[in-house]
């Protein structure tokens, strides 16, 4: 029988995959994809516990997370376009203007 803990384990695995992608890739587009993976891991967790507790609040939160993910993707890709136009690169380790 599949228990809630199984889903949590899947969620953790997906979180780790996303984190590795986020920390090691140089391509900004793929980093944004990694973030989507992390958010999906969160969603699996939320939905699994929603079922476990027998109420829909977790699913509603998942909907909000999807909304935030959409906003994040739209803005992130917008920034990417602006960046590409100005710097001709999407390699994240060539962009270091964020200091002080």
């Amino acid at each position: 029988m599949i228990s809630t803990m199984h889903y949590v384990a899947v969620s953790l695995a997906m979180l780790l995959i996303g984190t590795v992608g986020l920390l090691t890739r140089r391509n900004i587009v793929i980093i944004l994809m990694s973030i989507e993976l992390i958010l999906n891991a969160v969603n699996i967790n939320l939905v699994a516990f929603s079922k476990h507790h027998g109420n829909a609040a977790g699913q509603v939160f998942a909907i909000f997370v999807i909304a935030v993910a959409v906003a994040e993707a739209a803005v992130g890709l917008g920034i990417l376009l602006a960046l590409f136009r100005n710097r001709e690169t999407v390699q994240v380790d060539e962009i270091d203007l964020l200091k002080w």
């Binding site: 994809m33 890709l77 590409f84």
Partner: peptide
């Protein structure tokens, strides 16, 4: 994502190092 990938022609960076 696909739109943006098409727009910025990411394949130019294909030959570069992929990992940090």
């Amino acid at each position: 994502f696909l739109f943006v990938i098409m727009l910025v022609n990411l394949d130019a960076g294909k030959g570069l190092r992929q990992f940090h």
